[in-house]
Design a protein around this nucleic acid. Structure first.
Length: 311
DNA sequence: GCGACAG
DNA sequence: ATCTTGTCGC
């Protein structure tokens, strides 16, 4: 796929102030409201992928209306949409530490109708360390490289990390979503900032609660949210804006407890729709399928071509 | 100074 | 993110 806003590409060479300035620009450009054609039912994945025997094979024709009849070859439909099911792309990274230079492997996995249709990976050498709030500048470049190598063009990106739940409302998912101008959501295993409406411990599967901006979050002035009730900036009795949700995607009946997922809008998706989409993409595991597959793909690539080329 | 901090 | 064995429980 091709990048839409090259100027927003996360450049690790920028100074910290420049990085933060770019993030404010990203946040101002981002849309935290629904601007897509995604139907929750259309992206729902019922059966989890079996990762015990390696990565599921990619089937480029999966999901195409004619894939149950036509051979794998020529005659791509002319003039009309080749497929109808939306393409969801999961992105994740794995690192090879203890190597001369630490290497990072980024993987992008495209899924359509619950089946993997394409894998793309990129191996790079991180130039800056991880800094809370600046993750996109460490991982964004490799992720963009993997997405550049992807033939399919996504209807939705699922990133590992936050989106709007970020100090400047410009987390990794938002940054990547704006760069490619593709609807995106962020799925994090831990909360960076913001405050849950209710305590999150020991909740049953299906439970969710809003995450609202707190003192650590610079709320954008021009808030384009559609679902906000009342004022949130005029020092008054308004509620802080909802920037994401904590959602219990999986839980054990008893014994040990699983922590919730922290999901937030990346770009062109509302906070409410983000939770619905992520829940629909979960098929029994804590993490959504696109993320599980991207994680497995990155690990596989780390073992194989991890020692090979650089991008 | 203290606490908090995606991957 | 990564380094790692066993272990508790359905």
């Amino acid at each position: 796929m091709e990048i839409a806003n090259p100027a927003f590409r996360p450049d690790p060479a920028l100074s910290r102030d420049e990085m933060e300035a770019l993030q404010r620009e990203i946040a101002a450009t981002a849309t935290f409201a629904d601007d897509h054609d995604l139907a929750v039912e259309a992206v729902t994945i019922d059966d989890p992928a079996d990762l015990t025997e390696g990565l599921p094979p990619a089937d480029p024709t999966a999901g195409a209306p004619e894939d149950s009849h036509a051979p794998v070859s020529d005659a791509p439909p002319v003039g009309g949409p080749a497929v109808d099911a939306p393409v969801v792309v999961g992105v994740d990274q794995a690192f090879l530490t203890e190597e001369d230079p630490t290497r990072a492997v980024s993987a992008a996995v495209a899924i359509r109708a619950g089946t993997v249709i394409e894998y793309a990976t990129a191996t790079t050498t991180p130039s800056i360390p991880y800094v809370p709030g600046l993750l996109a500048f460490r991982e964004g470049k490799p992720i963009c490289a993997a997405l550049d190598a992807l033939d399919a063009d996504p209807d939705l990106l699922v990133c590992d990390g936050s989106g709007r739940v970020h100090y400047r409302e410009a987390g990794l998912a938002t940054h990547v979503g704006v760069c490619f101008d593709v609807p995106s959501v962020g799925v994090a295993k831990r909360l960076l900032c913001g405050e849950p409406d209710e305590p999150v411990d020991g909740r049953p599967a299906g439970w969710r609660t809003p995450i609202r901006a707190d003192d650590a979050v610079e709320t954008a002035a021009g808030d384009d949210d559609a679902g906000d009730t009342g004022a949130d900036d005029t020092g008054g009795g308004g509620f802080a804006p909802v920037i994401g949700h904590a959602v219990q995607s999986r839980q054990y009946p008893e014994s040990r407890r699983i922590n919730p997922l922290y999901v937030s809008p990346g770009h062109r998706v509302s906070a409410e729709t983000t939770v619905d989409l992520v829940e629909a993409l979960c098929a029994g595991y804590k993490l959504p399928e696109p993320t599980r597959l991207a994680d497995a793909a990155a690990d596989a690539a780390k073992r194989d071509d991890g020692k090979a080329e650089d991008a």
